[in-house]
Design a protein around this nucleic acid. Sequence first.
RNA 1: GGCGGCAUAGCCAAGUGGUAAGGCAGAGGUCUGCAAAACCUUUAUCCCCCAGUUCGAAUCUGGGUGCCGCCUCCA
Length: 487
Amino acid sequence: MTLTVYNSRTRQLEPLQPQRGKIITMYVCGVTVYDYCHLGHARTYIVWDVVRRYLEYLGYDVHHVQNITDIDDKILKKAQAEQVAMEVITERYIQAYNEDMGRLNILPPQQYPRATESIPDMIQLIQNLERLGYAYAAAGDVYYAVERFPTYGKLSQRTLDQMQSGASGRVEKEEAERKRHPLDFALWKAAKPGEPAWDSPWGPGRPGWHIECSAMVHKTLGESIDIHCGGSDLIFPHHENEIAQSEPITQKPLARYWLHNGFVTVDGEKMSKSLGNFRTIRDVLNHYEPMALRLLILQSHYRQPMECTPAALQAAQSGWRTLQQSAWVYDLPEDFVVDKTDCDKEILAQFEQAMNADFNTPAALAILFGLAKKLKHFDQEKRHRRESNISECQSRKIWQTFVYLTQNVLGLKFPFTSAQEAIATEEHTATLESFSDEIQALIRRRKEARLSKNYSEADRIRQELAQKGLRLIDQPNGETRIEVHSE
RNA sequence: GGCGGCAUAGCCAAGUGGUAAGGCAGAGGUCUGCAAAACCUUUAUCCCCCAGUUCGAAUCUGGGUGCCGCCUCCA
């Protein structure tokens, strides 16, 4: 069975057939760095990270490129508001972006081209478009003439007549007057006084938003790539415009497969800056583990809308604990490596069947949760009966497969066993010596009370310590574990 | 006005013709002095509504209802 993906261009599921054998070129539209990333960004980049990981799992050599938009109206606005150079803003949010992605265990693309580093490529592309009659200059701006491109709208399956220009209520009047057609869009914008500007044949200015992706796709991956990804909100106009800017020049499809992920929603509405209903990744990760968020996102299909509520995050947090417990039935050292060839073939086949259906990660996770349950069951049997109805060898192979698929392919990174104490965000276990004398004394008194079977006193002390944020757990081996709950 | 999406248990969510995955929460049990943890068992006569096609539909067709997205900020 081969991998089938939903192509937004054709609106149907298609078998993925790369152009060049085992090489796949994949371009993901990245962020505009003017603020912290929110859960919508988290979903997007987690989803494409899993797609990339799965393609690599299948043996493809994935050439993964993702741009950084570091010149834009919103960046300039923020720089002006803070009275700092544009670079101060962009560097701050690029760094924040990298931190967030790192915590979510998202693999960095091989290349992260920045708009400001590709200006000459963009200028050249605009000149080419102008020469072929697809672009026209107007008062220092350059616009793309949508009427010149007969198939404009083919990706979002709409025509110029159908579209109600200005429906979003965001078109500036002065700009509208310079355009030949209301849907023409800026390729180059004349610099306003005080703004950063680059020299160009049309005077000092800066590139429009869409042109950077056309230029950078071409520069980094070639004229026609295999997969182009991004959020559904980019279908129109961003990806539509990328096509319009590229295809008249190359006479080749910009991308063979267009993949788009669904939104994160809050009470059924799209999470977005303008609605103000967003939560930043870093805010969420102050309350939940990064892998819990990753799990939540992978528990719904990437094209569906995904409701993100505190209850859902909490459920994912618990689910992540379940998976971790299974990962820890054997020692999981930091440098643990499993190869695909060490895995159980039948399980791999099940996993692939799920993932081959347009990356059905929820179905894949259902398989992994099934393995998790099995592993804990074997572990329990071993503890109680010192034997199990499956061999140690089989159990170990299932475990290896489980860890490999969860960690390497879905990117849900388990904390290694020796660091278990450090993983929980809300609690950690502690040793007796780390507490004040007063608390140490209470813990000792409780131990003595228990030994003399004075349970009412022992329970009273446990209550008292609970109010100080300490939870005492009597374990079957006779030891008492102390958990510190930081509120 | 145009184009498109979604509607499955308390919550999140798979499933696109063969009789409802999975996670979380809940319930019962085992264990424990108790508690916690862990483990075991269990939880939708039914998939927004109506009509139709079919031996058979959550899944296909037609008609409704509700919610949401895009139409030059957006992941």
